[in-house]
Structure formats: structure tokens, C-alpha cells
């Protein structure tokens, strides 16, 4: 009885096989699935009509999608766009990172409260006029400590300073205020400095002063100072001193030192970097207090 009910459930095609099935009842379990497969194959093309757009076959619909859309990219174009945008963003963020790094370096050098390096001084320039920290304001200055009887390093460094000044003027449009402070006030009078410095660059301002003022100034700039106090006129001696260029901002505060390892181009490049990221004190304070302040700490 089971046999017959199953047979009755078979769709039309199944019924075609029914006589065979009846003849060989043992094969029944095998023949049924085969009948079902056949059944599906025949049924496939009969999809619900609603999926096919009115007045067109499926293949036509696919074609219209490909040509009709304006947003779709080819993989190649997408890749190029990705690379261009990616490279652009990488470059931008790298630049920004570098800028902030230099700014932070300068900020660390400035320190908190009392400046770590620099500060007020009370000296005399090569024309005999008083010269204090006030005169550093309004322009970037480069300070150098040395003495006119210096055997080889100071003249080398002053020649380099001349090149740096010209380089900055020509390539970056920046006029620096170069200042030479003597560590040897006993021999370096304003007149001596004037003559000595005129050989290097006309812009260089020579500063001298009395022994204690010079000593204080050297101490403030952490310059090693070994000049003995009591010297007889005409005595021949050398002075040990540190050899750095000090870059000062237009507020008269210390930014960075440039050691002897730089050549003129390297030093000019470093100075240019500092100048390009320089932010005046008021603006710095504002940045720190703003909602993005955490970035500058």
C-alpha cells in the first residue's frame, strides 16, 4: 500500500516510469530520486515572472546595468585613485608630524618659567652703543661666542656664518641678525671687534663689555668660559670656549643650537625649518589652552 501512495504523489514525469517501478519493486528506492532529479531539471526555466523586467529577458537587464551607471569604476581606476589619495594623505601627515616635532623641540628648549638658555645681558656693540636682549626682538638672531685672537675655529665658523646669512637671504628671503659676543673682553674692544668682523660679513654685530657682564652672559648661554680675570696688556693667550650658533626667536628667546657638524647649507636648512614652524608666544599659549591643546603638550 505504501508503494501506491508514493506513486500517486509522483508528478507527471514520475508516472512515466511507474510501470517499470511496478515491475521491479526492488529498485524502487533508487528510481525515485532519479525521477526527482529529472523533475527539477525540467522545472528550472520556470522562474516567477516578476523577476524578469517587463519587455526584456534577463540578459538584456544585465547589459543595461553595465552601461547605464556612471558611478561604477573599473578596478584599475579605483586602484589609481586609492594610491593617489593614500600617497597624498601620507605626505600631508608626515609633513605635519615633522612640523610638530620641530615645534616641540623648540618648545622643550624654551623650557618653563625662567629660560634655560639665554636671558638678559648688558653689553656694548662694536660702535660703542649699549646692546641688551631688547635688541634681539623683532627678528631672528644668530649668536656666536668667540674671540678675535682665535687661531682657526672661529674664523672658519664666522666664514660659515657669512655663507649662512647669504644663503638665508637669497634662498629663503630671511634676514637674520648675526651677533658675535667676545669671550675675551680684555683684548676685544669695540674698535678691535669692528675691524675684525668687517672681514667676515658686514651685518655681524660684535658685542663686548666688562669682564663680569661677559662672564654672566656666557654663563647664561652655558658657554664654557675660561678667560682669566687679571691679564696684562699685550699678553698672549688663548681662550677656550664652546663653539655653537645659538638661534634666537624674535622675542629674544632661545630656540636651538647648531653645532660645528653642519655645513653652511645644513645650518641654513635647519634654521629655515625652525623659522617656518615658529609660532609667537601668544599664539603658543592659545594653542595650549584650545581644545586641541593636548597635541602641543
Amino acid at each position: 500500500m505504501i508503494r501506491t501512495t508514493n506513486l500517486l504523489r509522483l508528478p507527471q514525469l514520475g508516472r512515466l516510469f511507474a510501470p517499470t517501478v511496478l515491475r521491479n519493486s526492488r529498485c524502487l528506492s533508487h528510481t525515485f530520486p532519479r525521477a526527482n532529479e529529472l523533475n527539477e531539471q525540467v522545472m528550472k526555466p520556470k522562474k516567477p515572472l516578476s523577476r524578469i523586467p517587463v519587455g526584456g529577458s534577463e540578459s538584456v537587464r544585465e547589459q543595461t546595468v553595465k552601461t547605464g551607471s556612471t558611478v561604477e569604476f573599473s578596478t584599475g581606476r579605483a586602484l589609481v585613485l586609492f594610491l593617489v589619495v593614500g600617497a597624498g594623505l601620507t605626505y600631508f601627515f608626515k609633513q605635519e608630524k615633522k612640523r610638530l616635532e620641530i615645534q616641540r623641540e623648540a618648545e622643550t628648549n624654551r623650557g618653563m618659567g625662567k629660560p634655560l638658555i639665554g636671558g638678559d645681558f648688558n653689553l656694548v656693540d662694536h660702535n660703542g652703543n649699549p646692546f641688551t636682549q631688547e635688541k634681539l626682538k623683532g627678528k631672528f638672531s644668530v649668536l656666536y661666542f668667540g674671540f678675535s685672537h682665535c687661531p682657526d675655529i672661529c674664523p672658519d665658523e664666522l666664514d660659515k656664518l657669512g655663507l649662512i646669512l647669504e644663503n638665508m637671504k637669497k634662498n629663503h628671503g630671511v634676514t637674520l641678525q648675526p651677533i658675535f659676543i667676545t669671550c675675551d673682553p680684555a683684548r676685544d674692544s669695540p674698535e678691535v671687534l669692528k675691524e675684525y668682523l668687517s672681514e667676515f660679513h658686514p651685518d655681524i654685530i660684535g658685542l663686548t663689555g666688562d669682564y663680569d657682564e661677559i662672564k654672566k652672559c656666557c654663563k647664561n648661554f652655558r658657554v664654557y668660559f675660561s678667560t682669566p680675570r687679571d691679564l696684562k696688556p699685550g699678553q698672549d693667550y688663548l681662550v677656550d670656549h664652546s663653539i655653537f650658533f645659538y638661534l634666537m626667536d624674535p622675542e629674544g628667546e632661545f630656540i636651538d643650537v647648531l653645532g660645528r657638524q653642519y655645513d653652511a647649507e645644513g645650518a641654513a636648512e635647519k634654521i629655515k625649518q625652525h623659522i617656518s614652524v615658529y609660532v609667537p608666544k601668544d599664539a603658543r599659549e592659545k594653542q595650549k589652552q584650545g581644545w586641541l591643546g593636548f597635541l602641543f603638550k
Binding site: 678675535s148 685672537h149 682657526d152 674664523p155 683684548r187 676685544d188 678691535v192 675691524e195 675684525y196 672681514e199 696684562k232 696688556p233 699685550g234 699678553q235 698672549d236
Partner: peptide, 17 residues
């Protein structure tokens, strides 16, 4: 009299070197 020597100028320096 002790003579205060002038600071060597460029040509003097070069000659010394």
C-alpha cells in the same frame, strides 16, 4: 712698553696657516 698686538686679520691668519 708692552705692545697690545692687533688681532690677526685674514691675510695674517692665512700667512700663519
Amino acid at each position: 712698553d708692552p705692545v697690545i698686538p692687533d688681532p690677526p686679520n685674514r691675510s695674517k691668519r692665512e700667512k700663519c696657516w
